[in-house]
């Protein structure tokens, strides 16, 4: 069965309140795809807010938001990015690694694999969905913070919103209670930076 044969429209919903910042989702993701060091389909960002002794730590699991009318899809010079079943995915046979998609993404959720020279990003583990499995991140999430649902179930998540870094973004992946200030850690046109893991980036820039 091919993904396109399924009528389902998938959506990812991430409840940031539940996330404990354990990084299992992103390590499971890298293992799933044998991703090279320094490149990430998904990351969990940390942010400390407040002043001693009233300090909190917040987390944000962030990955491709499967945008509607996705900027990366339009930017692709090879028509290698397609939108099916609610998933924006890269056709590895068409991709030539030009990197135009990277420039288009407002959060940097896509990179070109330095070994294969093919663009890679979160595809909600379409290979798993098509055989009835959960994506690697959702499957391992100890706090059930990540869920894949069908579009028709969205009404259960009235408080979920798209995480935007540009006014024109149309994310279909939704976050519950994400802190918009986290956008400071993301740069349009640059893949997720490994430097986000460095502890010096935890505090809010003021």
């Amino acid at each position: 069965m091919k993904m396109s044969d399924i009528a389902k429209q998938y959506r990812m919903v991430i409840d940031v309140e539940r996330c404990i910042g354990c990084h299992a989702c992103e390590v499971a993701c890298k293992q799933e795809f044998e991703a090279p060091l320094g490149f990430f389909r998904t990351m969990t960002l940390y942010m400390d807010t407040g002043n001693y002794p009233k300090v909190k730590r917040e987390f944000l699991p962030i990955m491709c938001r499967q945008c509607e009318d996705a900027a990366c899809l339009h930017a692709c010079t090879q028509k290698a990015i397609v939108d099916r079943n609610g998933i924006v995915m890269v056709d590895s046979e068409r991709c030539n690694g030009c990197g135009e998609c990277i420039k288009a993404c407002s959060i940097g959720a896509i990179y070109v694999n330095p070994i294969s020279r093919i663009a890679e990003k979160c595809n909600l583990c379409a290979h798993r969905l098509e055989i009835g499995m959960k994506p690697a991140c959702e499957e391992t999430c100890v706090s059930d913070a990540i869920q894949i649902i069908e579009e028709k179930e969205l009404k259960r998540f009235a408080n979920a919103k798209g995480f935007k870094n540009a006014a024109t973004d149309k994310p279909r992946t939704l976050h519950i209670n994400a802190n918009g200030i986290m956008a400071q850690k993301l740069r349009k046109g640059h893949p997720f930076s490994p430097m986000n893991y460095e502890i010096f980036t935890w505090a809010v820039r003021s």
């Binding site: 299992a24 390590v27 391992t140």
Partner: peptide, 10 residues
């Protein structure tokens, strides 16, 4: 209940 942490995957 079928959950693992980052260390298990790593």
């Amino acid at each position: 209940n079928g959950k693992l942490c980052a260390k298990a995957h790593g």
